[in-house]
Design a protein around this nucleic acid. Sequence first.
DNA 1: ACCTCCGTAACTTTTGTGGTTACAATAATT
DNA 2: AATTATTGTAACCACAAAAGTTACGGAGGT
Lengths: 149, 149
Amino acid sequence: MRVSTKFSDTIHLLAFISVYQNIHITSAVIATSINTSPVVVRRLIGTLKEAGVVTTDAETHNPIFAKSPDEITLLDVYLLTEGHTPLFALDKETNPLCIVGANIQDVLTGIYHEAETAALMELDRHTMQDVIDRLLTADKVKKAQAASA
Amino acid sequence: MRVSTKFSDTIHLLAFISVYQNIHITSAVIATSINTSPVVVRRLIGTLKEAGVVTTDAETHNPIFAKSPDEITLLDVYLLTEGHTPLFALDKETNPLCIVGANIQDVLTGIYHEAETAALMELDRHTMQDVIDRLLTADKVKKAQAASA
DNA sequence: ACCTCCGTAACTTTTGTGGTTACAATAATT
DNA sequence: AATTATTGTAACCACAAAAGTTACGGAGGT
């Protein structure tokens, strides 16, 4: 399937509004960075505002964090954007008249839940602040390398 | 777009050929249990044979395990069926002229890899034998409940 | 008043799925 | 040997989820 990039794009968006706080941010500017359309960006921001993660700055009218980037984990973002889609998909139409078909869904539900939880716990270990710090460090490294080349 | 059920269906198929070893198994019979078409089942079996997980029994001509269900983990099955699709999708078209766009892919690649690995390690903890055991237990429980009702 | 931008809705495009049809090759059954 | 059943593939179709596009009323700043 076309894999959803909403999760990645939303993290990108949040990092962007943090890094570029000092400029005038419009949905079009963010869209250029993500390489998508302004409408898509507005939709993502809509979700974030609805969830109380982002608000509008009274002075600049830029979108800004409504709570500290330290307090927003990637799990929070994931649940907002793709939380409705399970990481591992069950086949829900199995034949109930067969030992396997009748019970496989319950068995897999349990195992999938363990695996999914393990992944989501990892996401919860990283905050938006971590992501922003890593971005800025990666940028410094890249610029230093370019200068010494 | 449709969510892939290849992973779940392949586990189902493997459990089926183990549980119903004593009957004549055709792709049509398996398809009835999974509630799909025989061609889809043949495709799944094709992948399993190619990977050396399944072979054809010389006498019954049923598909059978080529190695012990103890030695096949759900991770093995996952990698065969959906291993090419990352659990968390990057957006690969971000703008390289922006601090965020230029570095977000590297940052997220690292974090996603940690999360994905955590999930896959869980899958690796479960073998096909585990799944079969759980199915048979679930079936016994269900039948006992039905009898006492 | 004008311009910019947002929020939303409706529609289109794209593309990974599974399902379907078809058929030659192989094997089992008579 | 002839017949029937089944497999392994290929080609094609239908579906649905996601993103992109178009459009436009409304809010706010100049």
